[in-house]
Write a protein that binds this DNA or RNA. Structure first.
Length: 429
RNA sequence: GCCGCUGUGGUGUAACGGUAGCACAAGGGCCUGUGGAGCCCUUGGACCGGGUUCGACUCCCGGCAGCGGCCCCA
């Protein structure tokens, strides 16, 4: 028997209905905020994909050659393709707000919360340097999660420039800053001692390690904590700019309405190399697994050959969100699946059953009918197991009176319905 | 990519170096005009390849896949 390749999986209908429901809600929120869909290919040129990435990411890109020996790779997130499009379509009005929802691929070790093929739902704003854009993309993500019925999540924020300022102030080697950031980023996962160990592996002397740990160990209500940070950063222009951006995000968060979810965390770094300003990450409970993350990348579009253009964005991890919703039971009562089942009481009325099913279908009512020639009790058993809410029983007795029996599968209640009012009775969804 | 643990019908499991059993699911019957229960029948299995052995699902090796850790990340 064949199995899906490593790190991929099948989604059977019961799960796919729920998944699609989640994706539809996310898309609704994206569109409610005025983001527009943009379509880009699943595979891009290898050159383009690796342009902005460090070694670690490049290693995780699915790479292949086509029959003409072109070097290609599967997209591992949405940002590269967006930058390519923006760089080559200067006519796009600014701000350019686009969304994209679909699979991305990463060659890494799979586990339950990490697949090699997974969906990202991504929004980005291109052309706005002000933190209002960062605040808005956070707000979209927050509202999408709320729309799905999630509540107790937190949005951790930081600014890359603050971390860079720390490196600067402590006179740590600049070429190590990404490695240092990654080490810092693990604080929540491996603790202070763990991070210190990582830093010492990088050759950071003990005294500086201690100072750095102190600097990044700021976590909590943004308003309260930002003051403390200013004191540390007062001699760093870069750091102060980061601080100002964060202040902006915090301020706008009140207006956008996600202030209660906001948490300043100076140990948040995010792995991706290209962030230049605010970075953010949304998680729920388990701190090591984020369900959404993003940040500002003001230098990326020019890297792809476009005009220098500020940009910021956020990605939601669809599988992780679905898994979370399932764990919380949010999806249990979801009404999904086909609405109506048309059952035939006998073979002689089958043609009539087809006719009725077609009428319902053309009226937009999702309708199934018996294709197996089963007995009525088998049809009802089937309809019950499949979760149909209404069964239309077509039988010669009712047809003689010009109608059918409609059975409510939840209550068991049955009513005779004249054919001409069947559509009204079942109604559109 | 590295290290560790695991791999029995579709799913969940049992026993055993010598005939692979159970439950659920699926299809059917009891029941050709009424579902959720019950009883009965049917279909269907040792991840793959090699080795040890009279004999391997069982032991050994390799691959593949899953899980956990590292790395990285939604």
């Amino acid at each position: 028997m064949f199995r899906p390749p490593r790190g991929t999986r099948d989604y059977l209908p019961w799960e796919m209905w729920r998944r699609n429901w989640v994706i539809d809600r996310i898309r609704e929120v994206f569109e409610a905020y005025g983001y527009e869909p943009l379509g880009t290919p699943a595979f891009e040129s290898w050159e383009m994909l690796k342009l902005k990435s460090g070694e670690d990411i490049i290693r995780e890109i699915y790479y292949f050659k086509d029959k003409s020996n072109r070097e290609l790779g599967l997209r591992f997130e949405w940002t590269a393709s967006l930058c390519r499009v923006v760089a080559s379509h200067r006519e796009l009005p600014k701000p350019f707000k686009r969304y994209a929802i679909g699979p991305v691929w990463r060659y890494e070790r799979p586990s339950e919360k990490r697949l090699r093929e997974f969906w990202q739902a991504d929004v980005d704003i291109v052309g706005v340097a002000d933190p209002i854009a960062d605040a808005e993309v956070i707000s979209v993500a927050v509202d999408a999660l709320k729309r799905l019925g999630l509540e107790g999540f937190k949005v951790r924020i930081n600014d890359r420039r603050i971390l860079e300022a720390f490196v600067e102030l402590l006179e740590l080697p600049r070429n190590l800053s990404l490695d240092i950031f990654r080490a810092i980023d693990k604080l929540n996962k491996i603790g202070v001692d763990g991070v210190e160990r990582e830093l010492s592996k990088l050759g950071i002397p003990e005294e500086k390690r201690g100072k750095l740990m102190e600097m990044i160990d700021v976590r909590g209500e943004p308003e309260e904590r930002l003051g403390e940070v200013e004191e540390i950063l007062k001699h760093s222009e870069l750091g102060l700019r980061g601080l100002e951006a964060l202040r902006g995000v915090v301020e706008y968060s009140g207006r956008f309405g996600f202030r209660p979810h906001l948490l300043l965390d100076l140990s948040l770094a995010r792995g991706l190399d290209y962030y230049t300003g605010p970075v953010f990450e949304i998680y729920l409970g388990d701190v090591s697994i984020s369900i959404a993350a993003g940040g500002r990348y003001d230098e990326l579009i020019q890297l792809y050959g476009g005009d220098p253009t500020p940009a910021t964005g956020i990605s939601l991890g669809v599988e992780r969100i679905v898994a979370t919703l399932q764990e919380l039971g949010v999806l249990d009562d979801l009404r999904v699946g086909t609405e109506v089942f048309v059952a035939s009481a006998s073979n002689s009325v089958r043609d009539k059953a087809i006719e009725i099913a077609q009428r319902l279908r053309r009226a937009g009512i999702s309708t199934d009918l018996d294709l197996m020639g089963r007995s009525l009790s088998k049809q009802l058993e089937y309809a019950n197991r499949r979760g149909f809410r209404k069964v239309v029983i077509v039988g010669s007795r009712e047809l003689e009176q010009g109608g059918v029996t409609v059975r409510d599968m939840e209550t068991g209640e049955q009513r005779f319905i004249p054919l001409e009012s069947l559509l009204d009775h079942l109604g559109p969804r």
